[in-house]
Design a protein around this nucleic acid. Structure first.
Length: 272
DNA sequence: CGGGGCTCCTGTGCGC
DNA sequence: TGCGCACAGGAGCCCC
């Protein structure tokens, strides 16, 4: 489900909703979602802590907490395929529910229960964070660097865009959309992109992510924002989920192949 | 290093 | 209607 724009939308919603509020209690209804520490310690660390800040790195959502013992801890949330973090009333179907000091709740919903919650001392020390590639919307993410790193990769460009170690936050939807906008076939080898292609891809990655954030994400299925509402970017999909439909550019049918185990949509005529 | 398959889960939709 | 299979915004692991 959630890629960078969806997680960023949730982050912004939570900033408005929960900062400085105290977590009074935590109910864990699905234990295997809590990865670290052991369940009792997880609950203990959260209870009576306050949310100081909300952060995002790639697809990882991070709540900075100030505990009752006056220590800083971090609740990290990875939503995987179907996770939601929704502020409002309690939802008995939620996997984990946080009761807040304003009589509201923060619910972690997750139909497929593939998501991961952790409480850690230092979220930046997590292996997944340490190995994460650059943030595509940061100033430090430059075309020169992108081009250089592309040139060393012999695998298919779409698989590379999904690799969080290469670049953080892109998932199946935005990889497909950025490649279409750039006129690049998803099976093309990364190192074979020429200067113009790399530049178009670099620009379009940022463009599509920014536009999706403006639309508050894509909700064709389970994604919801921090207040339980749908995002509208699905209305702007150019290729994703459009198998057999006419390409908006050339009218030939959008194709679907499986690449790296993921459904991959593209126009065989416009993307070379 | 690349790529394929399998795994963790639950739910939906389609063809027969 | 019922059943089985494919597939779903992710990602780690094993194996060739």
């Amino acid at each position: 489900m959630p890629e960078l724009p969806e997680v960023e939308t949730i982050k912004r919603d939570l900033e408005k909703a929960i900062i400085d509020k105290e977590i009074l209690d935590v109910v864990v209804r699905r234990k295997n979602i809590v990865k670290e520490p052991a369940l009792a310690d997880f609950v203990k660390a959260l209870r009576h802590s306050r949310c100081r800040n909300v952060l995002r790195r790639g697809k990882l959502l991070v709540l900075e907490l100030f505990t009752r013992e006056k220590k800083t801890r971090y609740l990290t949330i990875h939503l995987r395929m179907s996770g939601q973090v929704v502020y409002g009333k309690d939802d008995p179907a939620s996997r984990v529910s946080f009761q807040l000091s304003d009589a509201s709740y923060l619910c972690y919903n997750d139909q497929r229960a593939l998501g991961e919650l952790r409480v850690v001392d230092d979220w930046r020390a997590l292996k997944v964070v340490r190995s994460m590639g650059p943030e595509p919307l940061d100033k430090e993410f430059t075309f020169e660097e992108f081009r250089k790193r592309l040139g060393r990769k012999t695998g298919k460009i779409k698989a590379l865009l999904l690799d969080q170690r290469f670049i953080a936050g892109i998932g199946n939807i935005y990889a497909a959309e950025a490649l279409f906008l750039s006129g690049i076939n998803p099976e093309k080898k990364a190192c074979s992109l020429d200067g113009n292609e790399s530049k178009r891809l670099f620009d379009n990655i940022r463009k599509v992510l920014l536009k999706a954030i403006k639309c508050r994400g894509s909700s064709f299925n389970t994604y919801r924002d921090g207040l339980g509402q749908k995002g509208s970017f699905s209305r702007h999909f150019l290729v994703y989920g459009r198998k057999g439909a006419a390409c908006f550019n050339c009218k030939s049918p959008i194709r679907r192949i499986v690449l790296g185990g993921r459904g991959t949509y593209f126009c065989g005529k416009c993307q070379k």
